[in-house]
Computed example of a mutant assay.
Amino acid sequence: MADPLDQPKEIRRSLIPRPRVEKDAAGKAAEAIARFLGTARFLVYLTVFCAVWLAWNSWGPEPLRFDSAANGFTALTLMLSLQASYAAPLILLAQNRQDDRDRVTAEQDRQRAERNLADTEYLAREMASLRIALGEVATRDFVRSEIRNLLEEITERERGAPADGERDRPR
């Protein structure tokens, strides 16, 4: 019988406890290793390791040598091949993670650019509407000329002369 979907799943306990590991722990470890493999410190360590290996197996006490020079240092070759065979996939994994981060960053940059473009277009429309509105506002010179015209009409009325608009009107 199938488990009902409205009930929580039972926790199965096993005799051997499973370690709880963060989902991305392997990726973080791969990046840390790949980051270390790309340093001068790693090259120095590897060079010292190989030099010590070669020196010990060439000039060390005969019964304590473990890699014969006569066989072309086969064990050293195998060690370096093993290191390279692990380094390549770790570096590729780290590059894939970096590509994913770059993709997310590019998407965020694209969204930010779209928002900036929309904001810029909005501000440009607002500035255009302000310019249009300012074109309809009375300027200082226009107001002064209107006041001057009104003053002239008032002074003409006070003198008794009919104003321009009153001459044509019947009484």
Rank of each mutant, 00 (worst) to 15 (best):
N116W: 07
L78N: 07
E62D: 07
L80G: 01
A75W: 01
S68G: 03
L90R: 08
D67I: 09
M127R: 13
E121W: 04
P89L: 08
A69Y: 10
N96I: 01
L64R: 11
L130H: 07
D99K: 14
L92T: 15
L130C: 08
R115G: 02
E121L: 12
N116D: 15
E107F: 09
Q95I: 10
L130V: 12
E107T: 10
A88W: 13
F73Q: 00
Y122A: 14
A75H: 03
A94E: 01
D67F: 04
Q108W: 03
N116G: 09
A69W: 09
L80P: 00
Q83V: 06
L117H: 12
R125P: 02
D109A: 11
D119P: 00
E107Y: 08
E126K: 11
A124W: 00
Q108F: 05
M79T: 03
L130D: 11
A87K: 03
A84Q: 01
I132T: 08
L123N: 10
D100F: 03
M79H: 01
R103E: 12
A88F: 11
V104Q: 11
L123W: 08
F73A: 02
R101H: 09
G72C: 06
L64M: 15
R101T: 09
M127E: 11
Y86E: 11
P61T: 05
A113T: 11
L64I: 04
S81E: 04
A128R: 08
F73G: 01
M79E: 00
D100V: 06
E107W: 06
R101W: 10
A84V: 03
G72E: 04
R110D: 13
L93T: 11
P63W: 02
Q83H: 05
R112I: 05
L82D: 09
S85E: 08
Y122H: 14
D102C: 08
L82A: 15
A87E: 03
Y86G: 14
L76I: 02
E62N: 08
S81G: 11
N96W: 00
L64D: 10
L93E: 13
D100Q: 12
A84T: 03
A106W: 01
F73H: 04
A128K: 07
A84L: 03
L130M: 14
P63H: 04
R125W: 05
D99F: 03
A94C: 07
S85A: 15
S68M: 02
A94N: 01
P63K: 01
T74R: 09
N71G: 08
A118D: 10
A70N: 10
R103P: 00
L123K: 14
L117P: 00
R112K: 15
R125Q: 15
Q98F: 02
V104I: 13
R112C: 05
N71Q: 11
S129L: 15
L130A: 13
A84K: 01
Y86S: 10
F66E: 04
R115A: 14
R65I: 13
A69D: 03
A70D: 10
L80V: 13
